[in-house]
């Protein structure tokens, strides 16, 4: 691999994300570790969205749905296990679980199934219709979660203790950070593999010129649907981790503002950049905390910062640092 400027910037971003919690641990400041974990989780959601948004050219305004589904699967399994109530008790019995290694695949598969349906229907359209259709589906799930009483409705669902991981104490903030960080790195690696594979190249072709792809016998629909589903699965994993970070899920995870925020992470860092979402999520959380200190109206300034990035730095932060627009 050539050592490009972007490689240097990427390494620096990752080093920083590791360094902050380690230093915080030494200084006895667990909250900073929690913040770093939040960055890693949001970054993972962003890496997922980036696959659809950046590499697939699918502007999904409904990824909060998958983030929230991942969270709710986690919350529901954990609370059933904690209360010793079976999930399903009929011809056979299905129990809840508090094992992360079981919860993650279930969350991923459930979100994947939703993504197949939502994706297949939404991909019948394109452009602004696609944006709005993904939004519509996530709004349906949001309103359903708000008004369905079984799992807390608007109040959300608390499960009080973090789920378990073999041989590691998940209550230790730094341990939990490592788990989230490792998953983030795996997801980044997977996206790198996907985008460089033949599938990824075909996808890039489909994004830039669908007609040409169709003419050589590749149907963009299946490419797009595949990337949409993989993207949703990654975001769902992030949702599961976020639920465990807070030991709590609520419809707020499904709200369209959440979709907007995940999108902001991607763009702030740099659309189509491998580590764009990591830099974006880091900056967003940092800005939230710094601006919050000096004004009650911090969202006003956050809006101005975002606006400036979109207007004047279309390659995002990583774009600024590497001084070229991202193109794969």
């Amino acid at each position: 691999m050539n050592i490009t400027r972007e490689t240097v910037v990427n390494s620096a971003v990752l080093a920083l994300l590791v360094l902050v919690p380690v230093v915080a641990q030494l200084r006895g400041d667990p909250f900073t570790i929690t913040l770093a974990t939040k960055v890693a989780i949001f970054a993972l959601a962003g890496v997922g969205l980036n696959l659809a948004l950046g590499f697939g050219g699918l502007i999904s305004f409904g990824h909060a749905a998958f983030f929230g589904i991942g969270g709710y699967v986690t919350g529901i399994l954990a609370s059933h296990a904690a209360n010793y109530e079976p999930l399903f008790d009929g011809a056979f019995t299905v129990n809840g679980t508090q094992q992360m290694l079981l919860i993650w695949p279930i969350a991923i598969v459930v979100a994947g199934l939703f993504a197949v349906v939502i994706g297949a229907l939404s991909l019948r359209t394109s452009g602004v219709f696609f944006i709005m259709l993904t939004l519509a589906f996530s709004q349906m799930i949001y309103y359903f979660a708000v008004s369905w009483p079984s799992y807390g409705g608007e109040d959300g669902l608390s499960f009080y203790t973090r789920n378990q991981f073999p041989e590691l104490n998940m209550f230790d903030p730094l341990n939990y950070f490592w788990v989230c960080f490792t998953l983030l790195i795996l997801a980044v690696g997977l996206s790198a593999m996907i985008t460089r594979s033949r599938f990824g190249l075909a996808l890039g072709g489909a994004r830039q010129n669908p007609q040409r792809m169709a003419s050589i016998g590749i149907r963009p629909f299946w490419l797009s649907l595949t990337i949409f589903v993989i993207s949703a699965m990654m975001t769902a994993l992030a949702g599961s981790l976020y639920a465990d970070l807070n030991r709590f899920v609520s419809p707020a995870m499904l709200n369209w503002h959440m979709s907007g925020e995940i999108m902001v992470f991607v763009i702030l860092g740099g659309n189509r950049r491998l580590l764009g979402p990591v830099a974006g999520a880091g900056l967003y959380i940092l800005a939230e905390h710094l601006l919050g200190q000096f004004s009650d109206y911090w969202q006003f300034f956050l809006g101005l910062v975002l606006l400036a990035v979109v207007l004047f730095a279309p390659g995002g932060v990583i774009g600024i640092l590497t001084r070229r627009r991202g193109d794969v």
């Binding site: 502007i59 944006i131 763009i267 279309p314």
Partner: peptide
């Protein structure tokens, strides 16, 4: 593209 419009 629409993405930048949505974000801005």
């Amino acid at each position: 593209d629409h993405l930048d419009q949505v974000l801005a």
